[in-house]
Simulated scan of single mutants.
Amino acid sequence: MDNQESKLGFTAFAENWNGRLAMLGFVIGIVTEYMTGQGILSQLGLM
């Protein structure tokens, strides 16, 4: 059997995807705020 690196836990693969998805979420949040004129908390009805 070939020696394969695990894809679970704190691996470089997981951390790269975590960072990419966090950046994507941040950009989507900023664009949504710009388009609606409301903050995220206002959109959720918390303020």
Rank of each mutant, 00 (worst) to 15 (best):
E5H: 03
A12D: 12
G39H: 01
Y34R: 15
R20G: 05
S42T: 05
S6N: 04
G37P: 00
E33D: 10
I30F: 08
F13Q: 07
E33T: 06
L21V: 14
Q43C: 11
L46F: 04
G29T: 06
L41N: 06
I30E: 14
N3L: 10
Q43N: 15
D2F: 07
S6I: 01
N3F: 12
L46R: 04
M47S: 09
S42L: 00
I40T: 12
E15K: 04
A22G: 15
A22C: 14
G45T: 00
N16R: 13
M35Y: 06
L41F: 09
L41V: 09
V31H: 07
G25K: 08
N18R: 15
L8V: 04
G37Y: 03
N16H: 07
E33F: 02
S42F: 02
S6M: 02
Q4F: 02
M23N: 15
L8D: 10
L41C: 08
G9I: 00
G19D: 14
M1E: 12
S6W: 00
N18E: 15
T32K: 11
N16P: 00
L24C: 11
N16A: 12
E15P: 00
T32E: 09
G39S: 12
F13K: 06
M47I: 03
Y34E: 11
N18P: 03
